[in-house]
């Protein structure tokens, strides 16, 4: 496998469970026992009600494209060969929105509101990224 040269995530003590989950083929996000909210990015307590009573919980991995853009300029040399590549903001069924790349779809077929589901991309031995592909609504 060729060396992975794209930027890697800033993994911290706070978001480690998210990245560990992806590596195990599961998307987990913090869930607040007090107010029932799921949130992203990770925070040390619920950003809605400030309860510390939360746990990491598996989420559906399903959502819709909330918005999306196509890069025509190669800011990163490591993305040069991908130009023009799409970045989507996916709204999960549970509420949080994640930035991601879409796979198995041509740029011209992407639309706001398009139903998508997570796929796991092992980009290095340590890091798995959550990408999304179209699903039947």
């Amino acid at each position: 496998m060729a060396e992975y040269t794209k930027p890697l995530p800033a993994i911290s003590t706070l978001n480690q469970p998210y990245w560990d989950g992806l590596k195990q083929r599961q998307m987990v996000l913090p869930y607040c026992e007090a107010c029932d909210k799921v949130w992203y990015p990770p925070a040390p307590f619920c950003p809605d009600c400030w309860s510390r009573d939360f746990r990491w919980q598996a989420v559906s991995g399903r959502g819709v494209v909330n918005s999306w853009v196509v890069f025509h300029q190669a800011y990163f040399s490591s993305f040069k060969d991908d130009i023009p590549y799409a970045v989507a903001e996916v709204e999960l069924e549970e509420g949080p929105r994640l930035l991601t790349n879409l796979v198995e779809v041509a740029n011209e077929d992407i639309a706001v509101g398009m139903p998508v589901e997570v796929v796991f991309d092992d980009v290095t031995d340590e890091v798995t990224l959550a990408k999304f592909r179209p699903r039947k609504g």
Binding site: K6, P7, P41, P42, Y75, F76, L99
Partner: peptide, 17 residues
Amino acid sequence: AREAGGGHGEDPVFGMT
């Protein structure tokens, strides 16, 4: 590249910069 991303919605991991 910071934890929780950039102030304009940057997430370089996905080429969002």
